[in-house]
Amino acid sequence: MKFLEPGLIALDVEAADGAAAIRAAGQLLVDAGAAESRYIDAMVASFEEKGPYFVLAPQIALPHAKPEDGVKEASVSLVRLREPVVFGHAKNDPVALVFALGASSSEEHITMLRKLTTLLNNPAHVQQLKDAPTPEAIGQLLEATTN
């Protein structure tokens, strides 16, 4: 399981639109060896086909595809956008935090989603993610909250 390790976090990324933001977050999974590059294409295709339903809360998107689309390990990355981007969601646009989810069918998938839900259920944590100066600072937040 690779859950928001410093190498899976990129802060203040520039993205022109929703697809570009998804690609940036997906690239972090690929660079960390957690997914094949076709997984990025599958996430973007799912966005184009099914719409922005994965914008789960104000400013927060959780793009993902299926385990068989090239996931090697259960994983979550984070791209924080320098300028929030419109995904086309009626209530939750614009998006500032993009968590790409490397979905797997293992038990780890459930453990990981539980950690992510625990983190994001608390608005103070979301604010800390928006304010964190470095990926390492986010690492410290995670240690304090989800372990």
Binding site: S46, K50, G51, Y53, F54, L56, L62, H64, A65, K66, P67, L101, A103, H109, I110, L113, R114, L116, T117, N121
Partner: peptide, 16 residues
Amino acid sequence: VCGLGQGTSLILRMNV
């Protein structure tokens, strides 16, 4: 319910 039934619907289920 979510689009793929893998990620976001499971998060919703946990909170429900």
